[in-house]
Amino acid sequence: MRLKWLVPVIYIFFLLLPIYWLVNMSLKTNEEILSVFSLWPQNLTFDNYRVIFTDKSWYSGYINSMIYVSINVVISVTFALPAAYAFSRYSFVGDKHLFFWLLTNRMAPPAVFALPFFQLYSSIGLFDSHIAVALAHCLFNLPLAVWILEGFMSGIPKEIDETAFVDGYSWPRFFVKIFIPNIASGIGVTAFFCFMFSWVELLLARTLTSVNAKPISAIMTRTVSASGLDWGVLAAAGALTILPGALVIWFVRNHIAKGFALGRV
């Protein structure tokens, strides 16, 4: 048991190695990638990153992704809050089945919905807009948000609600002033998960966009040019998509363990 610390260390090494390789490649020129095999860049270059930051068709992808992810997180958390409260505090006709139905949407394969989604959003004139992707991602993020928040809310004793109502708080005032501060970390964790699943999803985002709202991950698939694959730029684009995630994790690192318990242990 003395060597226990080795296990996570080896695991983290295994996790970081492919990422290191991607970053390593993004700092090389294409000639170097294809001709020499080296563990670190022989002549360091930032040209690949320069391409991404100066070419509008590249950096607009990041902006598009950011926009629809933010819209989605806001929609998911705002609408899930009252719903989760209802599920955790009240019983009403069909509550259990509604909850289960919501969860099945989290489990449904996006591939099943891809084609009808395309037609649905085209017919209501939302095709290729950020709101379309944000709404489509609500399909799995809203149920997830309700699920996580419900777990956190069930951990808050009911007496808090009752005391507040006795003190003459109206429901909205109680909810905003007392209840929300109590589950602040739960909201943070929920937003984290919504960000995560909206940020990483590609199939629906790609199906629902063509130019104006095209996410960065879809743009990455077009680096195949006449001269073959532009490996350096591809690697740089990939490396940049890791950054927002890493930042978000850094912000929630103290809540992350609790968050993964989904408030339900």
């Binding site: 996790l15 970081l16 990483v200 999803e201 991950s217 890791i242």
Partner: peptide, 13 residues
Amino acid sequence: VNMALPLLIPWNV
């Protein structure tokens, strides 16, 4: 932080 990192990388990346 390190372990959560792969979870936040877009799937096609």
